[in-house]
Design a protein around this nucleic acid. Structure first.
Length: 412
DNA sequence: TCTGGGGTCCTAGGACCC
DNA sequence: TCTGGGGTCCTAGGACCC
C-alpha cells in the first residue's frame, strides 16, 4: 500500500506560517517576475482565480481583494525539507516526489488510517502546514485518493475499490493524463477514471502508447511503478529566467547568461556531478506578436567533464556571442548543463589528468558563499553585485524567515 | 504595462552497422 | 519481374508532471 502526502495549497500555506494574519484571507502566490498565479488559498479559489492565470488578467475588483505574494522558493524549500524529515522519522520508505508531495510506504504499519492521521497532525503542529493523505494499492490510485481526501473532513482517504470509487472521477484528474490526452480520450468516450479503467487494453495501447497503458493498469490496482527511495542522478541541470525588462545590449545579455551559468554550476557541484556539455538559449517575447521573434539555441561539449564555473562561463559566453543579433528585444535566456556524470565515476583525460587546483578553487568558492552568504564571492562576468536592470520583478516578496539571520521573525 | 521554471519519459525517423 | 533483416545511437518533438 502506498500513501501520498500533499501539502494543501502549499506555497500559500507556507506564506501563512509566519504571517498568521493571512489565515482566512484570499492569498495568491505569483510565479517569478510576478507573472502567473501558481498557488491559491481556498478563499482565492472561491473568488475564481485560476491556476497559472496571469495576474494582470484577473479582474481588478477581484485583484483588489487578494493578498498577493511573490514566489519565495527559499522559504518553501526549507519548510518542504522539514516535512520530509518528519515523514522519514515516521515511515520506513519515503519518496520525495515534488516540493509539496511525498509518497510513503505503509510496510509494517498496522493501522494505516491511524498512521496517516498522526502524520498529518504532527506536520501541522511542527511546521504549520496542513496536509492531506491518500492511501491506495498503487501510486496512481494514491494520487487519486489524495484528491478525494482534499474534500474529506478527515483529510485522509482510502481507495480500495477503484472501479466503484472512481465512477465520477474526471479522467482529466488522473495522474499522467494532461490536457491533450483528456481531449483525445473524450472523443473516444472516455470521460471518467472508471471509463479508462474499463477500456480495451489493446486498443488503448495501440492508440495512446505504453504510458497510458501503464496508467490503466495502475488504476486497476496493478503496481507498475514502485517507490523510488533514492533520488536518481540528474541528467541535466537547467537555469533560466525571464527578464523584468527586455534586453537590447549584448553586455546585459552576457551578464544574464553568466548569472545563470554560475547558478547552474552551484547546483551541479552541490550534487557532486560534472557536466560534459553546456547549452545556451535566448528568447524574444513570444507574447508580443508584432515584435520580431528570435529564439536561437546552441550547445557545445567540453574536452572532459567539468564542474568548474570558469570553464562553463567561457563556453556560455562564446555561445552567447555567436547567437547575439542586434535588433531584437530579448526577454528570456537559459543555461543547461548536459550529460551529467558523477564526480567519482568520471572518464579520465589521457593527457591532462585531474585538475586538482580547479577542484580546490571551486570548493573554496562554495564554502565561502555557504558560510558568509550567497554572492560573497562572485564572477565579474555576471555583473556580480550590481543590481541588473533586467532583474526579476518581485514586488511582494515575504522575508526569508528560516534561511537568513537578518530576516528572522521578530516577536515584540 | 503585465504571461514561470525545472524536470522526465516516449516515439518516430534518420544514419549507420553487419 | 522480383533486392533482407536486425540492431544501435542520436535527435527532435510531443506529452506529461509539479
Amino acid at each position: 500500500m502506498f500513501g501520498l502526502v500533499d501539502g494543501n495549497n502549499f506555497y500559500a500555506s507556507c506564506e501563512r506560517v509566519f504571517q498568521p494574519e493571512l489565515i482566512g484571507k484570499p492569498v495568491v502566490v505569483l510565479s517569478n517576475n510576478d507573472g502567473c498565479c501558481i498557488a491559491r488559498s481556498d478563499e482565492a479559489k472561491a473568488l475564481g482565480v485560476k491556476m497559472a492565470q496571469p495576474i494582470f488578467e484577473v479582474a481588478p475588483h477581484i485583484r483588489n481583494q487578494l493578498i498577493i505574494r511573490s514566489a519565495n522558493f527559499g522559504l518553501y524549500g526549507d519548510l518542504s525539507g522539514r516535512i520530509v524529515t518528519i515523514l522519514r522519522d515516521l515511515f520506513a520508505r519515503v519518496e520525495v516526489y515534488s516540493i509539496d508531495e511525498s509518497f510513503i510506504s505503509f510496510e509494517g504499519v498496522r493501522d494505516r488510517i491511524q498512521a496517516a492521521a498522526e502524520a498529518r497532525a504532527r506536520i501541522l503542529q511542527w511546521t504549520g502546514i496542513p496536509c492531506c493523505v491518500g492511501i491506495a494499492p498503487t501510486k496512481t490510485l494514491a494520487k487519486a485518493a489524495n484528491k478525494l481526501a482534499k474534500k474529506h473532513p478527515s483529510g485522509v482517504s482510502v481507495i480500495d475499490n477503484p472501479s466503484d470509487q472512481l465512477k465520477h472521477f474526471p479522467v482529466a484528474d488522473v495522474w499522467g493524463v494532461g490536457r491533450r490526452l483528456t481531449a483525445r480520450l473524450g472523443e473516444d468516450g472516455i470521460l471518467t477514471a472508471r471509463n479508462l479503467l474499463d477500456a480495451n487494453p489493446d486498443t488503448l495501447r495501440a492508440r495512446y502508447g505504453v504510458t497510458l497503458a501503464r496508467t490503466q493498469r495502475e488504476l486497476q490496482g496493478l503496481v507498475c511503478t514502485d517507490l523510488q527511495d533514492a533520488e536518481p542522478d540528474r541528467q541535466q541541470i537547467v537555469c533560466s529566467r525571464s527578464f523584468g525588462h527586455e534586453i537590447i545590449q549584448q553586455q546585459d545579455l552576457h551578464e544574464a547568461v553568466a548569472t545563470f551559468a554560475v547558478m547552474a554550476c552551484e547546483k551541479l557541484r552541490a550534487r557532486r556531478l560534472k557536466a560534459s556539455g553546456v547549452w545556451v538559449w535566448l528568447n524574444t517575447n513570444a507574447f508580443k506578436l508584432g515584435q520580431a521573434q528570435y529564439h536561437p539555441g546552441k550547445a557545445m561539449n567540453f574536452v572532459a567533464p567539468t564542474s568548474d564555473t570558469r570553464e562553463v562561463l567561457t563556453a556560455a559566453s562564446a555561445l552567447t556571442r555567436a547567437m547575439y543579433r542586434t535588433g531584437y528585444q530579448y526577454k528570456k535566456a537559459g543555461v543547461g548543463l548536459l550529460d551529467l556524470t558523477q564526480c567519482d565515476q568520471q572518464q579520465g583525460d589521457l593527457f591532462a589528468g585531474e585538475d586538482v587546483r580547479s577542484t580546490r578553487t571551486m570548493a573554496v568558492l562554495d564554502q565561502v558563499n555557504q558560510k558568509y552568504g550567497r554572492g560573497t564571492l562572485g564572477f565579474a562576468m555576471s555583473g556580480w553585485r550590481r543590481t541588473p536592470q533586467w532583474g526579476m520583478r518581485q514586488e511582494n516578496l515575504s522575508k526569508a524567515f528560516t534561511t537568513k539571520w537578518d530576516q528572522l521573525l521578530r516577536v515584540v
